[in-house]
Amino acid sequence: MIQAIAFYIFAIVVLVSGAMTIASRNPVHSVLWLILAFFNAAGLMVLVGAEFIAMLLVIVYVGAVAVLFLFVVMMLEIDFAQLRAGFVRYFGIGLVLAVALVAEILIAVGAWSAGGVDLARRGAPVDPTIPNIQAIGNLLYTRYLFVFEGAGLVLLVAMIGAIVLTHRQRQGVRPQNIAAQIARRPQDATRNMRPEIGQGVQL
């Protein structure tokens, strides 16, 4: 009973916020609706017993990716007239994409109702008594070790690529030398002088 109520609440909020992501005029509002959608999708995953994936979804997508999105979008200068201007120009492409997606959904639903792919035999059988994290860990670090490490390597390459593309050596910059700053003591910079009258100080 309570699961059903929770499911319908989460599902309706995901659908509504997904629609609002597309429909809202203001990009910042779009990102916020998207965050709400992520959040409720995490709720759906908790309902099916995948609490580890749910937490990862919140930590990675809501906590990091969406913050970066919001960061970029907040900086935009929003010109609503310009946003609406491209409607006619992109209408054709949008229509083609929409038709393709609807066709895919129809095919998928057709295949599913025709029996579908038997996932139970392909997936690795998991003991239901051990917790989620342990089950995923057992698989990731044994059977899928090389795939997992390969994925990590791809991410590393992407990271290095991003750094190489954006990093530029600037001339004429004097970066701080933190060690030198910390090592500096008062007696290196100041002297206590007691000059005679009319003599002044030799700097």
């Binding site: 580890f52 919140v58 990091a64 919001l70 989620n132």
Partner: peptide
């Protein structure tokens, strides 16, 4: 008493920034 307690803490504290 959930078994992803610490991840829940991390997830919730990452929301604080919003």
């Amino acid at each position: 008493d959930i078994n992803v307690g610490l991840l829940y803490v991390l997830a919730a504290s990452s929301l604080g920034v919003y």
